Computed example of a mutant assay.
Amino acid sequence: MLRATVLGASAVALPFTAWSAAYAAPAQPATGPYGPLQAANSHGIQLPAGFTSQIVARSGQAVSGTSYVWHQAPDGGAVFANGSGWIYVSNSEVSSGSGGGASRILFDSSGAVVGASRILSGTNNNCAGGKTPWNTWLSCEEVSLGRVWETYPLGGTAVVRPAMGRFKHEAAAADPDRRVVYLTEDETNGKFYRFIPNTWGDLSAGTLQVLVAGSATSGSFSWAAVPDPDGSPTATRSQVSGAKSFNGGEGCHYSNDTVWFTTKGDNRVWQLNLANNTYELAYDDNLVTSGSAPLTGVDNITGSSFGDLYVAEDGGNMEICMITPDDKISVFLRITGQSSSEICGPAFTPAGNRLYFSSQRGTSGSSSGGITYCVTGPFRT
């Protein structure tokens, strides 16, 4: 559940089956659960009291303790359990000639780096993606007729998955309950898709569908098959009459019968309620009713085990903002001195006490200046 509604003068938390019928409103600014941000630390990051940060890797430099040189323009990412430790995977949003693809960093149970290597090479503008329940990373190409590549952080050779459609891919989110994968499209008239594999766990074949709905910001939706997932000569987003357009699809996250995704063109977080096939706005900067909107330039999104959403900014004030289960939004962290960059790849460790993310262009404003961080602290779990 990521909703609470106000009935009369009392706030009542509703179970999922009940709140979908309530009159929910987009998130509004409030004081965050961790309190105000402190002064910027030595990394230029403002965090709540009790939280600390470290630099994990820098583009163009060997990852500490390894000989592997970290890729340029780190973007979407995810964390995978690996024995008593874990692996952080990160995309590289540059062309194939500049090292596009994805890399991984291996950590032991204490969070120390124990290895780093490439898991995907020769691809273009790998922006975001998504983690699967069978521990693969879907690395998505954000180019015209872009593809989804299934990579293997725990070991294995990357494989292209053309059945998932060729379009300007952004993010993916696996739904193990319905056995589908949701996909966003980074176009001003982009669509929202789902891929239904013929066999769950095997993405080599299946059906690509697109969301069909009205033009309003809330209502009911359905799905329709995309006739030609290859997207040529007709783009996938132009093949189905009534498919709903979204202005610049970005991050995507699934949990508990709900999928959230962001659109950068209008600074919105959308929410699909999959139990009853309805959609609504979880956040819209134009619908903030008091003070200034804390979240602009919406981009990657992830969730904690507690149910908080963490939304990273592309531009804005270089912040990661939180949307809590009672529809309150606040700033969790802010990176200073990097106004020409964007925050990418937020992902939690299995224990939920570490958050990894990157500043794609760092202090230099160039793809060669990317920085990958880890924040540790008393996250709600």
Score class of each variant (00 low, 15 high):
A102F: 04
S218G: 13
N317R: 13
Q54N: 14
F246T: 07
T207K: 14
S92H: 08
S144C: 07
Q46V: 04
G122Q: 15
S64T: 09
P29D: 02
G65L: 15
G155T: 12
G97S: 06
A49P: 06
V269A: 14
E141I: 03
S368E: 13
G32W: 03
S218C: 09
P378F: 10
V298F: 02
R194N: 00
P378D: 15
Y283K: 02
C374K: 06
T151I: 00
A128Y: 12
W19A: 15
S238L: 14
W70L: 00
G206V: 08
K328V: 15
F107N: 01
S67M: 02
P229T: 01
S340I: 10
D327K: 11
G201E: 02
G231D: 01
D175G: 02
G370T: 10
V226K: 04
F80G: 01
S339R: 13
G352Y: 02
G83R: 01
W270H: 11
W70E: 00
D75E: 08
A24Y: 09
G249H: 02
V298P: 09
N189K: 15
A27Q: 11
I323A: 00
T262F: 08
W270E: 13
N91T: 00
N247D: 11
T151Q: 01
P197E: 00
W200V: 00
E250F: 05
H253D: 07
T372D: 01
A163M: 12
E185I: 03
P229K: 08
